[in-house]
Structures are given as C-alpha cells and as structure tokens.
C-alpha cells in the first residue's frame, strides 16, 4: 500500500513539473544571537523560512515595480547603508515628488517586534508592506497592478516556483516572501555585542557612556534589542501634521503623542531622529531629554517627569557609547543587498 501511494505521489509530482525542476526549498533557521530572547513566535509560524523565500523577498524588496512609478522600491527609503532607514532625510520621498508623513524607521531585528510603525498600527510583519505600497505619498500602487507587473516579468516565475512550489503570484506569497527577507534583517555584531561576548574591551569613554545609558535610557531602550516595543510620550511638541501617534490607532486620549520606542542599534546611521526626523544629530536628541521636554503634556511619560542632567562631557560619553551600537557587518552584509546591481533609470 505504502509503495502504491509513494509511486502515485511520484507520478503526480512528475505530472506537475513545469520545467523548473522539483520543489525542494532549502530550510533556513533564524539564528538567535547569544543572550537574546526568543523572537516573536508569530513571525515565521505560518511562513516557513527558506533560502528561496528569502531570495524572492530580497528581489521584491529592491524591485521598483512594487510602486506606481516603477522606480520606488522598498529599498529606496530603507537603505542598507543607513541601517535600512532613509539617510539624512527627515521625511522620505514618495512617488510624484511627495513626502511621507513620518521618518522611515530602520528595519532591524523586526522578528523581535510585536507591532510595526511609529504608532504600532501594524499587527503582523506580513501585512506591513500593504501600507507603504498603497499610500499615495509612498509607493502609490495597488496589489492588482503589482501582480500584473510581476506576471509580465518573466524573471519571477522561477523565484515563485522555487519559493512556493508553483509559479502562481498571489498577494499572500508576495507578502510572505517580503517578510522572510525583512524578518531576517538581524543586527547583532556591533562593538557593543563583541564587548558583551568578551571579544573586545570598551574604551573608558565608552564604559562611562554605557553607565549613563544604563542609568537614563535603558528602561525604554532595553538591552539587547535597545527597545522594549512599548509606546511613550517623550515630551516632543505636536508637529505640524498634528501627528498624535498611538492615539490614531487606539482612539484613546491617554495615548496622545505616544510613539513606539525605536531601537538604538545603528543609531549612528539612522539619522535623523524621532518620528518626524526633527533632530538631525544625536546631540540634539540628548539635549531634548535634558532641556527640551514639554512638561505640560498630560501623557508625558512618568520616567521623564524629572529632567535628565548631563554635563557636556557626559553627552559626548553617551554618544560614544551609542556609536558602539553601529554594526557595519549588518550595513555591508551582501546577503541583504540587491542580488544584482540596480539599474538607475533616467
């Protein structure tokens, strides 16, 4: 009986062959850095991480055809050299010379996150791309058009077949493949990590900076991810867009002006800072916490009710520590770069 079933299965498999060979994806294991908590179990529970899925995700991430103008890819605003944020831009550029409403967050260690976006409005990594893809001031495209464009691009059949077993291009497959790529963007090899692992020593200045970080910043920017995935009002005045942050999602006035705590990893490269990119260097960020907080806001975080006091030297020490979170093996990892050189369209 077993033999008959096996034989039939083999024949059925052969009958399904479409010229790209059998479906044999290579399983990938998400490597969890030493001492880190377990990633969000939801991330790859129903999206088996494979080499082929990752590769399709990488191709999609860098494909301008996911946007209306054919040139604005995920990677346009999430640049690897800027730890997958938009370097030196408070707001990013969408199609047709538009601006986004918020600063493009760095895409790092997403598999440990419990929600996405500055307001936490996105509840699963797979559905996040729907937002930038369809927003009129980001990629401005529809899923229908993307599927049509990908179907017209003969290079994709092979990728979809390799990742999912047949050539069919569906929104679910596009989103799952993108999640395999973005969920694999792990940064865990900074000077800080090497210091934690005992493979190098901090300079005295970095050590002092670490002590200052522990005393003043670590309750929200918690090690080892340098975020606790929570939402806080850190005392910034309401911006020109009237962006109330988390309140837009929950509808609760108690969430007014609360934003997600961003990871400090690669903060040297994810400049500028805050949800609207209002600070263009780390000194301005620290100065905000020492003397810029609006204490009249009713939702101001309780931890920030008392001003943080730093000397000028201490500010520098803290910045030197923050630079130890820079991970160039992440920002230069060829696996996270486009598989082929990008053609610049003129």
């Amino acid at each position: 009986m077993t033999l008959v079933v096996a034989l039939m299965a083999a024949l059925l498999g052969a009958a399904k062959d479409d010229g790209f060979g059998p479906y044999k994806p290579t399983p990938l294991k998400l490597s969890i850095p030493k001492g880190w908590p377990k990633p969000n179990s939801d991330i790859f529970a129903k999206n088996k991480l494979t080499e082929e899925g990752f590769e399709l995700g990488r191709k999609l991430f860098y494909d301008g055809n996911l946007s209306k103008d054919g040139a604005t890819s995920c990677g346009s605003c999430h640049q690897q050299f800027a730890a997958f944020s938009t370097y030196d831009h408070d707001l990013s550029h969408g199609i047709n010379n538009t601006f986004t409403d918020r600063n493009a967050p760095s895409l790092v260690n997403l598999a440990w996150m419990t929600s996405y976006h500055w307001d936490g409005g996105i509840n699963h990594i797979e559905v996040q791309p729907l937002s930038p893809i369809t927003a009129h001031n980001e990629m401005g495209e529809t899923l229908e058009n993307i599927i049509a464009k990908l179907n017209a691009d003969s290079s994709y059949s092979r990728y979809f077949k390799a990742a999912f077993g047949d050539k069919a291009i569906t929104s679910q497959r596009i989103l799952k493949a993108l999640a395999q790529f973005t969920g694999s963007l792990i940064s865990s090899n900074s000077r800080y990590d090497q210091w934690k692992n005992g493979t190098l020593k901090f300079t005295p200045v970095e050590e002092s900076g670490y002590a200052l970080y522990k005393a003043n910043c670590s309750s929200c920017h918690r090690e080892p991810l340098f975020t606790d995935n929570s939402f806080h009002n850190n005392g910034l005045p309401l911006n020109r867009f009237g962006d109330a942050g988390r309140q837009r999602i929950t509808g609760l006035s108690s969430d007014s002006l609360k934003f997600k705590v961003p990871s400090l990893r690669n903060v040297q490269y994810s400049v500028p800072y805050m949800h609207d990119g209002r600070f263009n260097d780390l000194d301005k960020v620290i100065t905000h916490y020492t003397s810029g907080i609006n204490y009249l806001q009713p939702t101001l975080d309780s931890i920030l009710q008392k001003p943080i006091v730093f000397t000028e030297r201490q500010k520098l020490e803290l910045i030197y520590f923050l630079y130890t979170l820079t991970d160039t093996s992440f920002t230069k990892n060829k696996r996270f770069a486009p598989a082929q050189p990008i053609t610049i369209k003129h």
């Binding site: 999206n47 797979e126 559905v127 729907l130 927003a135 569906t170 929104s171 679910q172």
Partner: peptide
C-alpha cells in the same frame, strides 16, 4: 499575517494603516 481567498487584501477589505 497575510491571508488568501476571501481574506486576500486584494479584496480591499483590509486596513493598511491599522491592521
């Protein structure tokens, strides 16, 4: 996460900004 069939976001019944 991403669903298919009647729940495919293609059906225009899934909020993109507030999942």
């Amino acid at each position: 996460g991403a669903q298919d069939g009647a729940l495919d976001p293609l059906k225009d019944m899934f909020w993109t900004w507030n999942s």
